Every structure is written in C-alpha cells, then in structure tokens.
Amino acid sequence: NKASVVANQLIPINTALTLIMMKAEVVTPMGIPAEEIPKLVGMQVNRAVPLGTTLMPDMVKNYE
C-alpha cells in the first residue's frame, strides 16, 4: 500500500503548506501520494483541513 499525505495539524484556509504540516500515512481512500510532499510545499489549501485529514487533490490550489 502506498502512503498518502495527511494533515499533521489543523491547516487554516489559504495557508501555504510547509513540511511540518504534513505526514505520510497509509489511508483509505488514498489521497495525494506521499512522494508529492516536496511539490506541495508552498502551495495553498483552498479550505480548512482538520488534523488527521487526508489531503485530496481538490483541497490544494493549482495542484495537478
């Protein structure tokens, strides 16, 4: 099973992601793959992301 990106803390709306906000975890359903973490740094979330939430592509602005 591949790990996904999971919020390590509450991430407020429009916050630019940093490494300490994210962790890799095997979850179902899968979200953004953990190997994308370096690419996510500096990208903004378009909603508040609660602690423990799996990051999905539609939660990150301009994620492709």
Rank of each mutant, 00 (worst) to 15 (best):
V60A: 01
V6W: 02
P57Y: 12
T18Q: 05
K2Q: 05
V6D: 00
L10K: 13
K2A: 09
V27L: 03
N8W: 11
M43T: 10
G42W: 04
N8V: 11
P12Y: 11
E64V: 09
K39M: 07
I32R: 00
E64D: 14
V5F: 01
K39E: 09
A34Y: 14
G52D: 04
V27C: 02
Q44R: 09
Y63W: 10
M21Q: 08
M21N: 12
L19Q: 15
M59K: 02
M21C: 02
L51W: 11
N14G: 14
I11H: 01
V41G: 03
M59F: 11
M21W: 07
N62P: 05
V45P: 04
I37P: 00
M30F: 14
T28M: 08
G42M: 07
K61L: 08
V6K: 06
T53N: 08
E36I: 08
K23R: 15
T54W: 02
G42F: 04
N8M: 08
E35C: 02
E25W: 12
V41I: 06
L55F: 07
M43L: 12
Y63F: 11
Q9A: 05
V27I: 04
K61F: 10
Q9I: 11
E35M: 10
A16I: 07
I32P: 00
V26F: 10
Y63G: 06
L55H: 01
N1G: 08
S4V: 03
L19D: 08
V6L: 10
D58I: 05
I11L: 07
I13S: 05
P50N: 09
E64W: 07
Q9L: 13
E64A: 14
T53Q: 11
L55G: 00
N46D: 05
L51N: 09
A34C: 03
N62F: 07
A34T: 08
V49K: 00
N14V: 08
N46Q: 12
N46V: 12
M59Y: 09
E35P: 04
A34Q: 05
P50T: 04
Y63N: 07
M30E: 11
E36Y: 08
V49G: 01
P33E: 04
E25T: 09
T15C: 03
P29C: 03
A48K: 09
A48R: 11
E35R: 09
N8D: 15
L17R: 00
V49C: 03
E35G: 15
V41Y: 06
T53A: 05
R47A: 13
E25L: 08
A3G: 15
N62E: 10
R47C: 03
P29N: 06
N1F: 07
N62W: 05
E35N: 10
M59I: 12
L17V: 05
M21D: 06
M22K: 00
K61W: 12
V45I: 13
K61T: 07
G31D: 00
M21L: 10
E36G: 15
M21E: 02
P12K: 09
D58C: 03
P57A: 08
A3P: 09
V60E: 00
I11R: 00
M56S: 10
A24I: 14
R47S: 08
A16N: 11
T18P: 01
L51Y: 15
I11C: 02
N62R: 08
G42A: 10
T54N: 08
I20K: 04
M30A: 12
M59V: 14
R47N: 15
A48M: 13
E36V: 07
K39I: 08
I11E: 00
V45T: 05
M43E: 07
N62A: 15
T53P: 00
L17F: 04
V49D: 01
N46M: 11
L17T: 01
K39W: 08
R47I: 12
P50C: 03
K2P: 10
I32C: 02
L40I: 05
V6E: 02
L10Y: 14
G42I: 01
V60H: 00
L17N: 00
